Simulated scan of single mutants.
Amino acid sequence: MKAFVFPGQGAQFVGMGKDLYENSPLAKELFEKANEILGFRITDLMFDGTDEDLRQTKVTQPAIFLHSVILAKVLGKEFNPQMIAGHSLGEFSALVASGALSFEDGLVLVSKRAMAMQKACEKEPSTMAAILGLEDEVVEKICAEIDAVVVPANYNSPGQLVISGSIAGINIACEKMKEAGAKRALPLKVGGAFHSPLMEPARVELAQAIESTTFNAPLCAIYQNVDAKAYTSPEEIKQNLIAQLTSPVRWTQTMLNMIGNGASSFTELGPGNVLQGLVKKVNKDVEASSIQSL
């Protein structure tokens, strides 16, 4: 069975989507529609901006979403998933690509999500760190024992877990992880503690926007981040999306469930090829590829 997956924040690069814009009338039309909806020319920043421009959350999230979704639309019949998933922000791309959300509604929600997350980050300085080479259970135990906000945030692949929380909590956790035998405990250059309780103000803000948006049944099951299970019910998809900002991204479990349910090939759509690599770490025998342009 064919699975398609969509990347999250961090996959962006200057020049992303430019060839789509130049070579596909449909892509050009959608990019221009996005400029209109957002109220600024995001295409200028995507195609010819600087790394710094693209690192602004209000730019990063819509940029990755647009590259991924427009690529899926331009592929036409070649985009034929039997199951689908997206990593964090990528879940919105997956929902639009699979018809659960319209292009316009998806972009508006992604833009609101980015703004709400930015606001939550400014309210309380916080961060994330990648922990390499420890069992998930060990990381979970260390986080639970620290008297500060620090939680598992992204279960990316076996032995690669990202933690999220207050700056003090992350600093203590990194030391304890190294003592416990982690190969690396690496603070990440991110704006804040995504997928942690510190995102609660953003979750509340985004919940209102999601509740008032129309969702449809997707063309195939979407495996959602919060519990790595397959969904087709618009109401359940909505509730899982609302819970996503303060819940961990269970990507390892998502890949295992998709493979267990028959996925034999994974295609990553959008910038970068991080997810292609993570699939291989979960199961080296599964076919994995990525598409970034036509």
Rank of each mutant, 00 (worst) to 15 (best):
E104D: 14
A130V: 06
S102Y: 05
L101F: 05
L109W: 00
E135I: 04
S102M: 03
V162D: 02
A180P: 09
E124W: 02
S111I: 01
Q118N: 11
S157W: 02
I167C: 14
A94D: 04
A153N: 07
A153F: 06
A116H: 00
R113W: 02
A120S: 11
D147T: 12
G181I: 10
A173W: 02
A144F: 04
Y155K: 00
P158N: 10
Q118M: 03
C174D: 04
A180R: 10
K123G: 09
V150C: 04
A100E: 01
F103T: 04
A120F: 06
A148L: 07
V139I: 15
C174T: 12
R113T: 06
S102E: 01
S157L: 08
S157M: 11
D147E: 15
S102N: 02
E179M: 13
P158Y: 10
K141T: 12
G169P: 07
V96S: 08
L107G: 02
S126R: 07
N171A: 15
K112N: 12
V108H: 10
V108W: 01
V138R: 14
N156D: 09
P158K: 12
I131W: 02
A148V: 08
V110W: 10
P125T: 11
N156P: 11
C174Y: 03
G165Q: 05
Y155P: 00
E135F: 11
V110M: 12
V149N: 11
S102W: 03
M128E: 08
V149L: 12
K178H: 07
A120H: 03
S166Q: 12
E122G: 13
G99K: 05
G165Y: 02
E175K: 15
A120T: 08
P125D: 13
K176A: 09
G106M: 10
V150D: 01
E135C: 03
E140S: 13
K183D: 03
E135S: 13
N154R: 09
N156M: 07
I163V: 15
M117I: 10
G159L: 07
V108P: 02
P125Y: 10
M117W: 06
L107F: 04
D105F: 00
V139P: 09
V162E: 05
E137S: 15
I142C: 00
M128I: 08
A168C: 11
L109Q: 00
Y155Q: 00
S102K: 04
Q160L: 11
M177W: 05
C174E: 08
C121K: 06
C121N: 14
S126N: 12
V108N: 11
Q160D: 06
K123D: 12
V149G: 11
A94L: 04
G169R: 04
K178M: 14
Q160K: 08
K178A: 09
E104G: 05
L109H: 00
K112H: 13
M115E: 15
V162F: 03
L109K: 06
K119C: 07
